[in-house]
């Protein structure tokens, strides 16, 4: 696997991401996000990070997008809603575009720096990854697990059905 394939895949992901954030329809945006995530996964495989590529396809492009699909099913995607979304986007893009444009400047100046030797991408073995994450980096692994548990409890709390007493206190 090579750097060229990784660059090509990342370019496809970049293009799909730009299209995704500018579509008025949430379904189209979600499909383009899926395209971006899958092409990033291809890029990871090309950079010999096989475990990261597999995780990218399984969890990012699989589980996360599936959760989005469940929510997209509940939204209104009629012609009226699309027209309102287009109207919102037509007036709102200038300031964000200016800010992002200013952030691009240091990136452009940074391209030239740091010419380093080029070889094939070094393979990242899943066994080394496990040794690192459950050895030296076990504190970070614990923290991310705690974050996931906190997220799970938060979702449970937000999604609960209100009992009669709580419903009285929080009228919809």
């Amino acid at each position: 696997m090579s750097w060229g394939l990784a660059i090509w895949a990342a370019t496809v992901a970049f293009g799909a991401a730009i299209l995704a954030v500018t579509r008025p329809s949430a379904v189209h945006a979600l499909l383009l996000l899926l395209a971006a995530l899958i092409s990033l996964g291809v890029g990871f495989f090309a950079m010999a990070a096989n475990f990261a590529g597999a995780i990218q396809l399984l969890i990012y492009a699989g589980a996360v997008v599936a959760v989005f699909v469940f929510v997209v099913m509940t939204i209104d995607a009629g012609d009226e809603a699309m027209a309102a979304e287009r109207e919102l986007l037509r007036h709102a893009w200038r300031w964000p575009a200016l800010i992002v444009g200013l952030s691009v400047v240091p990136v452009i100046f940074g391209i030239g720096g740091g010419a380093m030797g080029e070889g094939d991408p070094a393979p990242a073995l899943a066994s080394d990854l496990g040794l690192l994450m459950f050895g030296d980096w076990s504190a970070a692994t614990e923290l991310i697990t705690l974050l996931l548990i906190a997220g799970m409890l938060g979702v449970r709390h937000l999604g609960r059905k209100l009992g009669p007493r709580l419903r009285e206190r929080n009228p919809e």
Partner: peptide, 10 residues
């Protein structure tokens, strides 16, 4: 930056 634009503009 594409994502940042989306968060700010949408």
């Amino acid at each position: 930056l594409a994502g940042l634009f989306g968060v700010a503009a949408r």
